[in-house]
Design a protein around this nucleic acid. Structure first.
Lengths: 222, 222
DNA sequence: GGTCTTGTTATACCTTTGTTCAACAAGAAC
DNA sequence: GTTCTTGTTGAACAAAGGTATAACAAGACC
């Protein structure tokens, strides 16, 4: 006969320390999505395994299929959470600035939005593997493609509004949506270059390049 | 007793059709690298398996470990071949133009180099999964990181030379290496956006954006 | 304290993966 | 035709993968 943990506890006469804790479904799902995100950031899609995720979350193997259709289903949720966090933070910040700063010059809002793209919070090498994996998933999964399109358009729209506000106040004619799209592409490209070779540029140089491409059309912002 | 293929052939009295063909090592390696590249382009790192590659190349499973240290070793070779093909084509074309077009205005060479980035040959959605996978490998594999740095710097140097030539001829003061780096980032970012959502821009719009970021500093090229 | 619900565990199962290796045969050399 | 070299095959192997499920136990309820 082998001693189970509870048998040992009983023999000791001590109180049983719970072997696990029960969590509300929502909370447990969130824990697992966060653990899975860390695994994806650390090891890319090759590190996104049942074993690694459960070890990271401190749970047993069976729980993934209990809360998600499959491992791929969990990956979809990781995408949703990551995309929402990154993009929506920009959007919400832009909305907040516009609401709070009524009467302020639109240049301030636009400059803040530009700067936020190069803040360490976003312009960080930690998330390279995460986003490379998610982009591959977007290209493959039609469902994620639709979600990407929606969130991306929302962000581009916010940026275009801020650009148009400045251009309008200065009496300049600017194709705001196109400029917004090019700006986002530049940010992504600079970030990618930096992640693959940190010696090729600094975050400060990237921010300067970001300002330049906007200022070339709407005039100086700083 | 089971009939082997050769036994059947003998019974038929017909000539044995060779079950496989022997290839010179160099050629066989090239075949396998090409097949592996197709697998990576099609299915990403998840499609980069021994079975898939051997099926694609029309060979048996044992041959990968015969010609390469491991499957990862083959991936390194796929990177080398892809990177060399894409980047070196630009570099060689730039060198050729400069050699052939001595006495021609440098604007022509620069404009051609810019255009080449958006030609269907390179600006194509087929290779998204290929490059996402390779980028992840660069970030992970120090050996590939060094190779990437070398090839990337070579390309950026060529582009910077062409930019400096135009700026010099026009008496403009331009930070050519920085502009070259920003241009490359913009191209990569636009390509990425296009691959993830083809409705957000056209290759023509991307080319226009590419010209704009250069022309903003060196003046009109078209 | 006793009962019940259900979140959680741990194991078993099957599939797929990368690697190895002994046997085979294609094609050159004679 | 015969021999020899070696490129190639295909099965065998262990390791690792995802999923399903029966047994367990934590915590609420009475």
């Amino acid at each position: 006969m082998t001693d189970t943990l509870s048998n040992i506890e009983k023999k000791r006469g001590g109180k049983k320390a719970p072997r696990f804790s029960r969590e509300p479904p929502q909370q447990r799902r969130a824990m697992m999505i966060e653990a899975a995100t860390r695994c994806l950031s650390r090891g890319g899609i090759g590190g996104f395994t049942v074993d690694a995720i459960c070890r990271e979350a401190g749970i047993s193997r069976g729980l993934i299929n209990h809360y998600f259709d499959s491992l791929d289903g969990l990956l979809v949720e990781v995408y949703r959470a990551s995309m929402y966090k990154d993009v929506n933070a920009h959007i919400e910040a832009a909305k907040r600035r516009r609401a709070e700063n009524i009467g302020w010059p639109p240049e301030v809002a636009l400059a803040e939005l530009i700067k936020s793209n190069f803040a360490p919070r976003y312009f960080s090498g930690e998330n390279l593997l995460l986003w490379l994996s998610l982009w591959a998933e977007i290209a493959t999964n039609p469902h994620l493609k639709a979600a990407h399109r929606e969130l991306y358009n929302a962000y581009r729209g916010e940026l275009a509004e801020d650009i148009a506000a400045v251009a309008g106040a200065r009496g300049r004619s600017v194709d705001a949506p196109t400029l917004a799209r090019n700006f986002i592409a530049l940010v992504d490209g600079l970030w990618l270059e930096w992640c693959l070779d940190e010696t090729v540029l600094t975050p400060e140089a990237a921010e300067a390049a970001g300002f330049e491409i906007i200022e070339a059309q709407v005039g100086p912002l700083r």
